[in-house]
Amino acid sequence: MGKRMRCAVMALALILALPGAAVAGPTDDYRQGITAANKGDMDTAIAAFTRIIDSGAGGDVKNLASAFNLRGMCQEAKSDLQKALADYSKAIELDAKMAEALGNRAMLYMKLGDEAKAKEDATAAKRIDRKVKVPEFK
């Protein structure tokens, strides 16, 4: 698994562990998904993040958006680019200030050859968090 994926998964694990602690199911699914993704088992990770999405993430919109973003990262790792794009877009729809999802979608748009959309997302992501990884443009 790429360094970007590992770093993002680990950072989100720390962020998501505290708000989800009151809800045993989603917390267990986050742990399972993150562990599986770190091992490169994207199918298991996707299944875990899908359970969180299907459960509504305990009613926490930010956790739900994070689950979509994480599932998108796993879909992208499997080269299911359209599914990844849909998941990143849903994460952004749920939490318009999720810089990581904007950065992930910008990177994906570059892979898909849509530089205009990539620039738009990269600009939006950097406005929220200057440290978020985005594509570099000439």
Rank of each mutant, 00 (worst) to 15 (best):
A21L: 14
E115W: 00
R105L: 06
K3P: 00
T123N: 14
A67M: 02
K97G: 07
V134W: 03
Y109N: 13
L64H: 04
D80H: 13
R105T: 03
S55T: 05
V132F: 07
I92M: 06
K83Q: 15
A48H: 08
K133T: 14
L81D: 05
G25L: 11
D80R: 08
K111T: 12
G113E: 09
D29W: 11
M98L: 15
A21D: 03
A11M: 06
G20D: 08
M73W: 01
A11D: 05
I34S: 09
V9D: 08
A48G: 12
N38E: 14
A122D: 14
T35H: 15
K138I: 00
K78Q: 15
M5R: 11
G56A: 06
R130P: 10
V9N: 13
A48D: 08
A86C: 04
A24V: 12
S55N: 06
S55L: 08
P26W: 07
M5C: 01
M1H: 14
V132E: 02
A24I: 14
A17T: 11
I52L: 01
N69V: 01
I46L: 05
A122Y: 12
M1P: 12
A122Q: 15
L12Q: 05
L112A: 08
T44M: 01
D114R: 06
N38A: 08
M110H: 04
A101F: 06
E93W: 05
K62S: 13
F137I: 07
T50G: 04
A17C: 05
Y109I: 00
T27G: 02
A47E: 15
E93S: 06
A106G: 10
K111I: 10
T27I: 03
M110I: 08
T44D: 06
A96G: 02
A96Y: 00
D114G: 04
A84L: 03
G72R: 03
R31W: 11
G103P: 08
S66V: 04
K119G: 03
A116Y: 03
E120A: 10
A125P: 09
Q82F: 05
Y30V: 06
K97I: 04
G103S: 09
A86K: 15
D121P: 14
A65G: 10
M1Y: 09
E93Q: 12
A37P: 06
A122I: 08
